[in-house]
Design a binder for these strands. Structure first.
Lengths: 132, 132
DNA sequence: GCTTGACCTGGAGTGCACTCCACCTTCCAG
DNA sequence: CTGGAAGGTGGAGTGCACTCCAGGTCAAGC
């Protein structure tokens, strides 16, 4: 139990494949990951923390390109906090809008469901014989 | 003002491109669309209604393959209403789960935003001079 | 020492949902 | 009657986010 995580551990923890993990690194979504002398990756707490945010943003559909920009800001240092904040605030707003849209669409779908239920309720009774 | 819509009208109405409209038809997401003798498509009220549902399901991320299955049920006739209902109910449940997940992720993102704001508030005051 | 499982790299391949293109026909306002 | 907009077809191309693969190296228990 050292002070770092192996690729396998990280992959399991976040439900990502090793390939995805490496892909994210190649694409610059993580700060440079340390290596053992053997070349094996060693994920530190900071890597895991950033990855946690990355996954959070990915699962809310932030595109890889935007995530890369964000990761670049992180790499540039503490003076980019205002820009990072802006990225997150904008994403938060998008997310609010997206959730609202999904809710609206869900409403419409539920109306359709109700309509179909009505159809079944109306014709169901007298067709019970016929159908079976 | 006839009792049908042209492709352009339908595309504008739903915010889809003509290519997408034709693509949906090719993929079997619509019931067969009528044609004028010239070959031009004529969308009837029924087509528009189905397309409205299709778009609703697409914008809530139902895959094309599943939409095709649904459209096939529609083409098979009224006796498939129970299956259609099942498809919609399942999608509704998925959607509920998806919305809940987005909300959870949004919570996490907002925590990060608050954290960044804290960072700025703490170091901001004495750096105001320095920064500008 | 050897096997087995985890890890490495560079690069190719995949699946999805469009999107674009070339080239031809049809419609309709002036 | 004509020019431009709208529409048609088949097929190729695109962008995104992975995902897979070959052909190796490394670590650890027996």
């Amino acid at each position: 139990m050292a002070d770092y995580y192996t690729p396998g551990e990280v992959a399991r923890r976040f439900g990502l494949s090793l390939d995805t993990l490496r892909y994210y690194e190649r694409e610059g979504l993580l700060t440079q990951v340390e290596r053992a002398p053997s070349g094996h990756r060693r994920y530190r707490a900071g890597d895991v923390e950033l990855l946690d945010l990355v996954r959070c943003l990915r699962e809310t559909d932030m595109p890889i390109a935007r995530l890369r920009e964000f990761a670049e800001l992180v790499r540039e240092g503490d003076h980019t906090v205002p820009q990072r904040l802006q990225v997150l605030e904008e994403h938060d707003a998008r997310l609010t809008e997206r959730i609202a849209e999904l809710r609206r669409r869900q409403e419409a779908i539920r109306h359709k469901i109700d309509y179909y239920r009505g159809v079944l309720a109306e014709r169901g009774p007298e067709e019970k014989e016929e159908v079976r």
